[in-house]
Amino acid sequence: MNHSTLSRRAFVALTASLLVTGRADASPFREITWEDLIPTGVPLGEIIGPGEIDEVNDTWNPQFDENAKKLSTSLDGKAVKLPGYIIPFDVGSEGVSSFMLVPYVGACIHTPPPPPNQLVFVTTPTPWASESLWNPVWVSGQLSAKPMSTQIADVGYQITAELIEVYEW
């Protein structure tokens, strides 16, 4: 064998090693958007109907059609990473241990709740001790397309968070 053959083999081995190492460092979570939670073929504009005012509680109650409850079952059981805002449920001295992840700030508090397929209920074994709950976060974990009802809204998805991080622009 000549010297140039060994150099090529060494280069190929090094390149393959770097590729494998790079893959090992890649996130196990697939980054998704809120639109991914709506099944293919269901337009967002057809999810929310006109709604009605609740004069007793001074709130607007949106009316959702059946499309609002349709979930993206192709994501069920998948490891995902989704950005959003926290609406806290269980808050203790160590932080928030369960919350609603919503697509925009103020959802469910200052505005009517989004449709069920745009809400994710999050639990975390390690409380999120954020200085400001108004900052956006990334939530990473296994997504479950499993509807549930809360005191705030009907929810289409659930995640047990493996990782919560501040969302940086």
Rank of each mutant, 00 (worst) to 15 (best):
N2W: 01
N2E: 11
H3A: 13
S4H: 07
S4F: 10
S4D: 09
T5L: 14
L6Y: 09
L6C: 05
S7N: 15
R8K: 12
A10Y: 07
F11T: 14
V12D: 05
A13S: 07
A13F: 11
L14W: 09
A16P: 01
A16E: 03
S17R: 02
S17Q: 08
L19F: 15
T21S: 15
G22R: 07
A24H: 07
A24R: 08
S27T: 14
P28T: 06
I32D: 12
W34M: 04
E35I: 04
D36L: 13
L37I: 12
L37Q: 05
I38A: 03
P39Q: 00
G41Q: 02
E46P: 00
I48T: 13
G49D: 08
P50F: 03
P50M: 02
G51M: 09
G51K: 04
G51V: 08
I53Y: 14
V56E: 12
N57G: 01
N57M: 04
T59Y: 03
W60N: 01
W60A: 00
P62H: 12
P62D: 15
Q63S: 15
Q63C: 00
N67D: 01
A68M: 04
A68K: 04
K70L: 13
K70Q: 14
S72T: 11
S72I: 01
T73W: 02
T73S: 12
S74D: 15
L75P: 07
D76H: 15
G77F: 13
G77Y: 05
K78S: 13
V80H: 04
G84I: 01
Y85D: 14
I86N: 05
D90E: 13
S93L: 13
M100H: 14
P103L: 06
V105G: 08
V105W: 12
G106V: 06
A107T: 06
H110A: 07
H110R: 15
T111M: 03
P112F: 03
P113M: 11
P113T: 07
P114T: 05
P115Y: 12
Q118W: 02
Q118E: 11
V120D: 05
F121I: 08
T123P: 09
T123W: 07
T124S: 12
T126Q: 11
T126N: 12
S132V: 02
W134A: 06
V137R: 02
V137Y: 01
V139G: 06
P147N: 02
S149G: 03
S149D: 10
Q151H: 07
I152H: 09
A153D: 02
D154T: 06
V155S: 07
G156T: 02
Q158M: 10
T160Q: 13
L163N: 11
I164F: 08
I164E: 08
E165G: 11
E165T: 15
E165W: 14
V166G: 09
V166F: 13
W169T: 07
